[in-house]
Computed example of a mutant assay.
Amino acid sequence: MTTPARYPFNTDEGLDLADAYRAAQHTPGPVRVQLPYGEPAWLVTRHDEARAVLADTRFSRAMDARRDAPRTTPVSPIGLVATDPPDHTRLRRPAARAFTARRAEALRPRVRRIAEDAVRRMTASAAPADLVAHVALPVPITVICELLGVPAQDRDRFRGWSDTVLSTSGAGPQDFLAATAALKTYMGDLLDRRRAEPADDLMTALLRARDEDAPDSRASRDELVELCIALLLGGYETTASQLANFTWVLLTQRPDALPGIASHPGRARAWVEELLRYVPLAASASLPRYAVEDVDVGGVTVRAGEPVLVAIGAADRDALRFPAPDTLDPDRDTAGHLAFGHGIHHCAGAALARVELQEGLGALARLLPGLRLAGEPTWKRAAFLRGPATLPVRW
Rank of each mutant, 00 (worst) to 15 (best):
Ala118His: 07
Ala304Trp: 11
Ala41Glu: 09
Ala118Asn: 08
Phe246His: 14
Ala129Thr: 15
Ser60Arg: 09
Val139Trp: 05
Asp163Val: 03
Ala365Met: 11
Asp326Trp: 03
Ala129Phe: 07
Val310Ile: 13
Arg159Trp: 03
Glu116Leu: 09
Glu376Tyr: 03
Ile114Phe: 07
Ile229Lys: 10
Arg110Lys: 13
Ala178Tyr: 02
Arg372Val: 04
Arg112Ser: 14
Thr72Asn: 13
Leu91Pro: 03
Gly370Ile: 05
Thr2Lys: 08
Gly234Met: 04
Pro259Arg: 12
Gln242His: 12
Gly235Pro: 08
Trp379Leu: 12
Arg194Lys: 14
Leu373Asn: 07
Arg92His: 11
Leu275His: 05
Ala214Trp: 13
Pro128His: 13
Ala363Asn: 14
Leu338Ser: 01
Arg102Ala: 15
Val31Leu: 04
Asp192Cys: 06
Pro323Gln: 01
Asp56Tyr: 03
Pro215Trp: 11
Ala314Ile: 02
Val300Lys: 05
Ala262Thr: 11
Leu361Met: 10
Ala126Thr: 13
Arg66Glu: 13
Cys347Pro: 09
Ala257Lys: 08
Thr252Phe: 02
Thr327Gly: 01
Thr238Pro: 04
Phe246Ala: 14
Ala24Met: 02
Asp130Phe: 06
Leu258Cys: 11
Gly172Lys: 08
Val279Gln: 02
Val75Ile: 15
His345Arg: 02
Val165Asp: 04
Ala339Trp: 03
Glu226Gln: 12
Gly336Asp: 00
Ile144His: 10
Ala339Leu: 04
Phe9Gln: 01
Ser162Arg: 09
Val111Ile: 15
Leu207Lys: 04
Arg58Met: 02
Ala311Arg: 00
Ala182Pro: 04
Ala335Phe: 01
Ala319Phe: 00
Leu17Thr: 01
Gly266Lys: 08
Thr123Gln: 09
Val393Ser: 12
Leu243Met: 06
Thr301Asn: 04
Leu391Arg: 13
Asp222Arg: 12
Ala101Gln: 10
Ala315Ser: 09
Ala181Arg: 12
Pro4Thr: 12
Arg58Gly: 14
Glu105Asn: 14
Val111His: 05
Leu91Ile: 14
Leu190Lys: 12
Glu274Arg: 00
Arg208Pro: 06
Asp211Ala: 14
Lys184Asn: 07
Ser217Gly: 06
Val308His: 05
Thr334Glu: 02
Asp68Thr: 12
Ala98Asp: 08
Val135Phe: 09
Arg317Val: 01
Thr73Cys: 08
Ala104Ser: 15
Pro109Leu: 10
Phe158Gly: 08
Cys228Gly: 10
Leu17Lys: 00
Ile312Asn: 01
Pro377Trp: 06
Arg92Trp: 05
Arg269Val: 15
Leu328Tyr: 02
Pro323Lys: 01
Gly299Leu: 09
Asp216Arg: 11
Ala82Met: 09
Ala50Gln: 01
Asp117Trp: 13
Phe322Gln: 00
Pro36Asn: 14
Leu43Cys: 14
Asp192Arg: 14
Ala62Glu: 15
His264Ala: 11
Ala136Gln: 05
Ser125Leu: 09
Arg277Cys: 00
Ala282Thr: 09
Glu197Lys: 05
Ala209Val: 05
Val308Tyr: 03
His345Pro: 01
Ala52Met: 11
Met1Arg: 15
